[in-house]
Simulated scan of single mutants.
Amino acid sequence: MNNPFLTEYVKQHLRECQLKQLSILEEVDRICRKHQIDYWLDGGSLLGAVRHGGFIPWDDDIDIAMTLEGLKQFTHIAPQELREGLFLQTPENDPSHKEPIVKIRDLNSLYIESGDNMQAPYEKGLYIDIFPFIDYPSIPKSWVKKLTKGISTSYSILHKAHYYSLRAFAEFFWFGAKYGIYRTIWGLLYVFCAKDTYMSNILVNNGYGIMHRKDSVFPLKPILFEGKEFPAPQNPDSYLKDLYKNYMEIPPEDKRKIHAIYVHPELINHGNNKQTHT
């Protein structure tokens, strides 16, 4: 983000955004407790809980994870359970939203990131991300990195907006073939290798080849985040080292990135918000 005015504007509204995201997390927590669905703080949210006791001071999102089975249960229940003004966003119920990530959006807000397509009509309110975790085969980490990077990169290119050109035509076939080959290899490994030790994000979300030992995740235990207890991995130290290596080191100021390029935490006109989706 190069506009200093917008940069300062987003910084001034950062805490307001964080508190609204925290209220979304509390609603997800309520539903998961009611229906006994396991979830846990993931990524920067877990790092913030361990290192800062809450949000990373310059962070403007919340990440949580569920098993794929748990997420299927949650997405079935949540549309009927979420309080008014929150929207469960998936590629199925908001088709112009292409990310393979489930989000809970606040409809009475506006949150714009650099990758947002302003011509697409998907909801763009403040959100929390829910990442689906699956079992991973017990194979060398170098294999996992190679395969997940190839699969996630190919998926991303195949699902971005394409324009008619020779390059786009070549990309479609090259990355389509690469995606198919790598998925086939992964499928064979998944069938013939043990899957009782590791788990991680679904392949298209895991370009870095991260794997977590299941015994570092389960059984879940509570951790303080912004003065409230939320579920976290059993061994946060091991989990965060998988993600960030030396996670307690504070990055230099020029690396402390806010994702939003524009944010409006509270819209004035409530009547214009979409409350129902098909």
Rank of each mutant, 00 (worst) to 15 (best):
K20G: 02
D59H: 05
Q89H: 01
C17Q: 14
V50Y: 03
A78M: 05
L71S: 01
I62E: 05
H35T: 01
L19D: 14
I37Q: 05
V28D: 02
Q73V: 13
I64C: 01
L82E: 13
C32N: 12
Q21D: 10
M66D: 07
D29E: 14
V28A: 08
I62H: 05
H35S: 08
G43C: 07
G54V: 04
H35Q: 11
A65L: 02
C32M: 12
A49N: 06
A65G: 11
D60V: 08
C17F: 00
G44A: 13
L47Y: 04
E92H: 10
E81N: 03
G70K: 11
L86M: 13
F74W: 07
P91I: 11
G43Y: 07
G53V: 10
L71D: 01
E26S: 14
W40E: 00
F55L: 12
F74D: 03
D38T: 03
E92P: 01
D42E: 15
G85Q: 12
G54T: 04
Q18P: 06
R83A: 14
Q18H: 11
N93C: 09
K72D: 15
K20M: 11
D60C: 05
G43I: 02
E84T: 09
D59V: 03
L22E: 05
L71G: 04
F74H: 08
L71W: 02
K34V: 08
P79I: 05
E92R: 10
L25D: 02
W40H: 01
F55R: 10
C32Q: 11
F74N: 01
L88N: 02
A49H: 02
F74E: 03
N93W: 06
D38K: 13
Q89A: 00
F74Q: 07
M66E: 09
R33D: 14
T75I: 15
Q89K: 00
G48T: 05
L86G: 00
Y39C: 09
T75D: 09
L46K: 02
R33I: 00
L86N: 01
F87T: 01
D29F: 10
G43D: 09
H52V: 07
G48I: 06
E27M: 02
F87G: 00
Q73M: 13
L41T: 06
L47I: 07
R83W: 02
D61G: 04
S45D: 08
V28P: 04
W40A: 00
D42W: 11
L71H: 02
G70A: 15
G85N: 13
L82K: 08
D63L: 09
E84H: 10
D60I: 06
Q73W: 08
N93K: 07
R51K: 12
L22V: 06
R33P: 07
I37W: 04
D42S: 12
Q18S: 08
H52F: 14
I31F: 01
T90F: 12
L46I: 09
A49S: 15
Y39L: 08
T90L: 11
H76L: 14
R33E: 15
I24C: 14
L25F: 10
T67K: 12
A65Q: 06
C17E: 13
H52E: 13
G54A: 11
A78T: 04
R51D: 13
Q73G: 09
L88W: 06
G85V: 13
P79D: 09
G53F: 11
P91C: 10
E16P: 00
A78K: 00
P91A: 13
K72V: 03
S45V: 08
V50P: 07
L71P: 00
G43N: 06
D63V: 03
I64D: 00
I31H: 01
L47V: 06
D29W: 04
